[in-house]
Amino acid sequence: MSAGGEHLKDEGSKRQTVLAGGAAGLISRFCIAPLDVVKIRLQLQVHSLSDPLSHQTINGPIYKGTRSTMQDIVRQEGITGLWKGNVPAELMYVCYGALQFTAYRTITQALEQMGPYRLPQSAESFVSGALAGGIATATTYPLDLLRTRFAAQGNERIYRSLSSSLREIAQQEGTKGFFRGCSAAVVQIVPYMGLFFTAYEGFRPVLAQWEQLPLGTGDAAAGVLASVIAKTGVFPLDLVRKRLQVQGPTRTRYVHRNIPEYTGVMQSIGLILRTQGVRGLYRGLTVSLLKAAPASAITMWTYERALKMLQETGILA
């Protein structure tokens, strides 16, 4: 992986790399959109699956697992239901990638100028990654919120279009309406980065000794395992973020009409623990982990081919 990684870094101009990365993100996002919609629907589901009696008062669908949830959405809302929220999500991916890339580069260069007070390289990567992720997350958060709200819509269309959603949220909820749950999203970045790098550095030397791994290299396998651990560790914050994003005047109009009223991160976690137990904080985790592998595979496949095409045509050389 290291040799291949160094080779990739030498290929193409910076502009070609950014364009190829953007194309990879867009296509990858489109392909995994159905899994993302399923994840959001499961994260917003608050009623118990093990207690049939609790279903009697539910006005809305009852989802049980990734496959059946996907089938239910197609049956009740049509195939396009699996791509609800894809437009703001695509915009978010493009803007997020550009901001993260720019911020990471700027912060890294600033840290390199600290002279005798310079941090170890691993610490620089962690600080740069966490700050860049936080900046990109906060800046693109309104698009993330819109992605969730569109994906949470059932057959009743709360928002007719991207422009109308922006207008209605601004009129009904004000500027703060676009940033519901943003604190959970930003706070999620630091522990995610910490867990990822800690797990990655722990797994890498062990897996490097194994030959003929199904993922090709020890680095790739270590990256997948680290991603699973990190995603699992911070998943409750991701779930809380989704619950907070659908608060406001439209809370009872989404496909799940019994979403409780949450007012903050800690209050949300406490309420979920009291009413749904620890398992309630991990609804949708399985599909979240399932979409990581195809997303990475599609991203890399598209990136390599897009970059090769740009090089052959000389575009942005």
Rank of each mutant, 00 (worst) to 15 (best):
Leu143Thr: 09
Val234Trp: 05
Arg241His: 11
Tyr282Arg: 02
Pro249His: 11
Gly284Pro: 04
Arg283His: 12
Arg157Lys: 15
Gly174Cys: 05
Leu166Ile: 13
Ile169Asn: 06
Val224Trp: 05
Leu285Met: 05
Arg274Phe: 03
Ser227Lys: 02
Leu271Met: 12
Trp210Ile: 09
Val255Gln: 14
Tyr262Phe: 15
Gln212His: 15
Thr250Glu: 15
Gln276Lys: 09
Arg160Val: 07
Val246Tyr: 05
Val265Ser: 06
Pro214Cys: 07
Ala221Glu: 12
Leu239Trp: 06
Leu285Gly: 08
Tyr262Asn: 10
Gly284Asn: 01
Tyr282Leu: 07
Lys242Gln: 14
Val265Met: 09
Val255Thr: 14
Phe196Glu: 08
Tyr200Met: 05
Thr148Gly: 04
Gly270Ile: 11
Leu273Ser: 06
Ile272Phe: 00
Arg160Tyr: 06
Leu146Glu: 07
Gly218Pro: 00
Tyr200Arg: 06
Gly202Glu: 01
Thr148Asn: 10
Thr275Val: 03
Ser183Val: 15
Arg149Phe: 10
Thr252Trp: 04
Arg241Trp: 03
Leu285Tyr: 02
Arg180Phe: 11
Gln171Ile: 11
Gln245Met: 15
Ala151Glu: 07
Phe197Cys: 01
Asn258Pro: 04
Arg257Thr: 14
Leu271Arg: 13
Gly280Trp: 00
Thr198Arg: 02
Ala230Ser: 14
